[in-house]
Design a protein around this nucleic acid. Structure first.
Lengths: 153, 153
DNA sequence: GCTTGACCTCAACTATGGTTGAGGAATTAC
DNA sequence: GTAATTCCTCAACCATAGTTGAGGTCAAGC
């Protein structure tokens, strides 16, 4: 095996990360990784790119979209290889965001419980669906979502 | 306005639920609601369908896919209109499932914290990605996901 | 009875997150 | 030096969750 003229091939990266070659190319399209090219036009990756791609996998597992991950990656340094401190900072951001999401889900879960317990299914205004911060709510009054009409059985 | 010859039109259902007409038709394609047709071939809905569709909206908000919602709806009675008890039973199922998801996310969040704290970013075996119940894991040994090589800085 | 609005089907298009395959070029192995 | 891999780009396709528009029909108001 040759030394690849400095850098790992996409297949080697795929083996190291467990990602499919097609997924790695796709992530490049999405601006998540920027390999350089060798004389023949083939992609060559740094070792640091393995970390970058692994981080993508983890963040996806945590429920983040590629666009969100790309946005967070904007905080990584441009000129130099990210340090452990850079990665820790990003990890903490994801952690905070994840906390918010868990809190949101927990609140939603509590509302569901209230609905089950109080017969909300026939209430005029559903605790679960009204006055939420959904984009669709903007400019609209409360809707009768779980009740057919005010006195429905 | 005529009485619609027993049943609500799709436009009336859209007004009551806040859903787009196109979405309601799509949910029918997905097997989530089964309106009957009048003599002219137009869809006519029962009042109970409003509840059904509202439940779809709520379950989606809770993070469930249409396929999952359809699967849960299989527990609703075939011949008769679902009672409040039927809906409560389904709500509790979603609640339990939601609890599991929140617990899963919380566990993941804890692993992320461990990674941040212990310098996991350079560990051989990442707590966040190894030995998970992911389909991709099957038949494969542990991978060096967040570490480039055993002694990488 | 006719016009207007609501409804019909079907196909195409949106975004997200990729995979698959065609046809060809580069690299590696022997 | 040649054969086997691996890689390249580009286009098409998968699922999920719908929206949009074309072309045509049905229902309701006056």
């Amino acid at each position: 095996m040759k030394l690849n003229a400095r850098g790992l091939s996409i297949g080697q990266i795929a083996d190291r990360t467990g990602l499919a070659v097609s997924a790695i190319r796709f992530y490049e399209d999405q601006g998540l990784v920027r390999p350089h090219r060798n004389a023949g036009g083939q992609r060559r990756y740094d070792r640091a790119d393995i970390r970058r791609l692994s981080f993508v996998m983890i963040a996806q597992r945590l429920g983040f979209t590629l666009a969100e991950i790309r946005a967070q990656f904007a905080a990584l340094p441009e000129g130099r290889t990210p340090t452990k401190a850079d990665w820790s900072k990003i990890s903490r951001r994801f952690g905070t965001e994840l906390d918010d999401r868990i809190a949101g889900l927990t609140a939603l879960r509590a509302r569901l419980d209230k609905c089950i317990g109080c017969g909300c299914l026939s209430l005029k205004q559903c605790h679960l669906y009204n006055r939420q911060d959904t984009a669709a709510d903007k400019g609209q009054g409360p809707r009768y979502l779980l009740g057919d009409s005010p006195d429905d059985p």
